[in-house]
Amino acid sequence: MREALNRLSSEGLVESRVQRGFYVKPVHLDELRELTKTRCWLEALALRESIAHATPDWDEELIIAHHRLTRTPRSLDPERFEDNPEWERLHRDFHKVLISRCGSTPLLEFCEQLADRLYRYRMLSIRKVFTTRHVKDEHAEILQLVLDRDSERATEALTHHYKRTADAVLKDLGTPDPREDG
Rank of each mutant, 00 (worst) to 15 (best):
H66C: 00
G103A: 02
A54W: 11
L147W: 13
L42P: 05
D137L: 04
C111Y: 03
W87T: 00
C102K: 09
R68L: 07
V135K: 04
E109T: 13
H161D: 09
I64P: 05
N84C: 10
P56G: 13
K136I: 10
R48E: 03
R80A: 14
G103I: 08
A65N: 05
D77K: 08
W58P: 10
R92K: 12
H160N: 02
E156A: 15
F81Y: 15
L107H: 08
L107E: 07
H161Y: 02
V97N: 01
H161V: 03
T70I: 09
E82Y: 08
E109G: 10
R89E: 09
H53A: 14
T70Y: 00
L107T: 13
I51D: 00
I142F: 14
E79L: 13
A46Y: 00
P73K: 01
E156N: 11
E49D: 09
T159G: 05
D93V: 14
W41R: 13
P56L: 12
I142H: 14
S75T: 05
W87L: 03
V129K: 05
R92G: 07
D148C: 05
T72S: 05
H134G: 01
S151Q: 15
E109F: 13
K96I: 13
K163I: 13
E141K: 12
I126T: 00
R48I: 09
R133C: 10
R101V: 03
L158R: 03
T132E: 01
A157H: 02
R133G: 06
T155Q: 04
D77M: 03
T155L: 04
W41I: 15
H67Q: 04
S50M: 15
F130P: 12
T165Q: 14
Y121D: 08
V129H: 01
C102T: 01
A166G: 08
C111A: 15
A52V: 06
P56A: 13
R101M: 01
R68Q: 12
H139D: 00
A44K: 04
V129P: 06
C102R: 09
R74G: 05
P85K: 09
R153M: 12
E79K: 02
A65R: 04
H134E: 13
E86D: 08
F110Y: 14
E82I: 10
A115E: 08
C102V: 01
T70D: 06
P78G: 05
E61Q: 15
L145H: 01
L145W: 01
C102D: 04
